[in-house]
Design a protein around this nucleic acid. Structure first.
Lengths: 231, 231
DNA sequence: ACCTGAACACCGTTCAAGT
DNA sequence: ACCTGAACACCGTTCAAGT
């Protein structure tokens, strides 16, 4: 398990340990000191091999979503809508396996995290669908932003420190009056812990599979409609 | 500007100062000490009036998006699709006015931030559109997750500390080969700083208006198609 | 009720020094 | 080239004490 103590540490080992640490303690507990300790070394060693905390997280994101990309079918030979479904599910599965990474990725989506491979493949799929020029850009941003954003929202950590007091939330939802909030009250059982903003368990322990599949087909049907409109 | 030194501080004043501080220094620079200093008091005073840093941010989110909600038309008398357009633009405008708050909201979307008012109104609009029971939940999550997530992705801070090295990114995009990344290269000028993952300027200074409107109509057309399918 | 001032237990990051 | 050990300049939060 632990690397041979005689061997020099490698950047790859740092990234791998960072992923495990993030899974164990979340974004908040992910400190350079904790990471160094797990590797049996000192914080400055991390800086030497990878760089700052942000650099480590970027590399982690690249690794996690890069691996997910490698499992996808070929965007050039799969029907575009089918490929987008595979891509979205693949992104979400990678996120679900490492929720802290997915949460971080929402607010740090640049080319080191969403790699050129992802970018090219999504653009290729949308291009094969028929999107061109500024419509290609818009369709790309629509798909990627909706996907990365939605999954980030779903995978909120259920960390009471961050403002989720389960009892208080349940009580708050229960106290909403039918006069002021008729639609919520009429659907309370259905919505509780299933609707964003009416749940107190994050997507890690409480995945919203049905909603995700619904959202995914909404995005793709919507994109299809945009093609019809331009044609 | 500054409150009378004789007057006791109020929670409202703390929230108001917090919003200004967040606008000035971003999420990273938003510390309890800095907030206390701006109010001419001590960190413990913040704790007495509002609570922890997370509590302050929750209240800030509630205020920012609560004010945005108050400007929306009535969800019960506006056509559902039209109302969703207003709601989405209102949310995004509030986010653009306070990007740090929007970025925080993505990973902290619970009932104190996305208030019951928002939840009720969106549910009402979707209910009037024809969504029922589990389809109502799914449509709600689709709309809110896509919206909050997309805007959060758009409004990434352009903070070089966080991994955006402009020169390095521009160089990286320029170095992509046409063999490996034909679609990116063919559309490079169109995509650079306009496509998520190929930009190095966040949505605060570089808004992606066209893509947002495209995304919004994609979501709504997609939802319409879901209704057709069930009917 | 409201605030002060200090303290506790941490952080990320840098750097001189070692091997 | 790779790592140690310590230091710097911060954090969020708590708490006894004041008024």
């Amino acid at each position: 398990m632990t690397p041979m103590p005689e061997e020099a540490l490698s950047a790859d080992e740092v990234i791998a340990a960072a992923i495990v640490l993030l899974d164990d303690v979340g974004l908040r507990g992910f400190t350079m000191r904790a990471l160094a300790q797990r590797l049996g070394t000192y914080p400055a060693t991390i800086y030497w091999h990878v760089g700052s905390r942000g650099a480590v997280l970027s590399e982690v994101g690249g690794r996690v979503f890069g691996d997910a990309f490698d499992k996808l079918p070929d965007a050039g030979s799969t029907p575009w809508d089918e490929w987008l479904v595979h891509a979205a599910r693949g992104y979400r599965e990678a996120g679900r396996a490492h929720p802290a990474v997915a949460a971080w990725a929402v607010t740090h989506m640049h080319s080191r995290v969403t790699t050129p491979d992802w970018t090219e493949a999504i653009l290729l799929a949308l291009s094969r669908a028929g999107f061109r020029d500024e419509h290609l850009t818009a369709a790309f941003n629509t798909f990627l932003g909706s996907l990365v954003g939605w999954v980030g929202v779903e995978l909120i950590a259920d960390d009471p420190e961050l403002g989720w007091d389960p009892e208080q939330m349940e009580e708050g939802i229960g106290a909403l009056s039918a006069d002021d909030y008729p639609t919520i009250v009429a659907n309370r059982d259905e919505l509780t812990n299933r609707a964003f903003s009416l749940r107190w368990r994050g997507g890690g322990s409480n995945p919203l599979d049905e909603s995700f599949e619904f959202a995914l087909s909404t995005w793709i049907e919507g994109l299809r409609r945009q093609l019809d409109r331009d044609a």
